[in-house]
């Protein structure tokens, strides 16, 4: 669609969208960790989406793939669209009932994730408002 080409023309909006997806998924994981803080045998889970995003953007550790020719295979928008991050179990020591949820750590992660989510939302809306201003030729748009 035309509007998709307008709003998702380059990789930054895709990165923002993917970051929002991951942050809301992380929020669910952290909430479920907190709800299960007394469940025997429960293992706390988390996802590392930042590492996945860095790899997709080609800015991760090690040798980065760069596309200097259009025949090259490298990071492109399809990579970012199909990005997946698998939840992993947290390596904290378990309590006597086999549960390893650290409530203080989870609360801290919840607050951090909330701030990151709000920041991402603000940036995506600021970017969109710039595009809307261009469409309406109106500075208030």
């Amino acid at each position: 669609m035309l509007i998709d080409r307008l709003l998702f023309a380059d990789k930054t909006p895709l990165v923002l969208k993917k970051a929002l997806d991951f942050q809301s998924e992380r929020h669910l994981l952290i909430s479920s960790n907190i709800s299960n803080m007394d469940t025997p045998g429960y293992q706390a889970k988390d996802i590392d989406f930042k590492g996945a995003l860095r790899t997709a953007l080609g800015t991760g550790e090690g040798l980065a793939i760069r596309t200097t020719n259009r025949h090259h295979i490298g990071p492109n928008s399809e990579d970012i669209k199909g990005l997946q991050a698998e939840p992993f179990g947290e390596p904290d020591a378990a309590k006597s009932n086999g549960n390893n949820v650290n409530i203080d750590k989870e609360m801290m992660k919840l607050a951090e994730n909330q701030i990151a989510y709000n920041a991402t939302i603000q940036m995506i809306s600021k970017r969109t408002s710039t595009i809307r201003a261009a469409i309406t030729e109106n500075a208030q748009g």
Partner: peptide, 26 residues
Amino acid sequence: IEKLASGESQNIHGAMLAVNKADTAF
């Protein structure tokens, strides 16, 4: 924005300032 989203930098205010600056300039 990309650096912030991929965790390369923790500078939220820097990214916000850059986005606001670009928006105002535009």
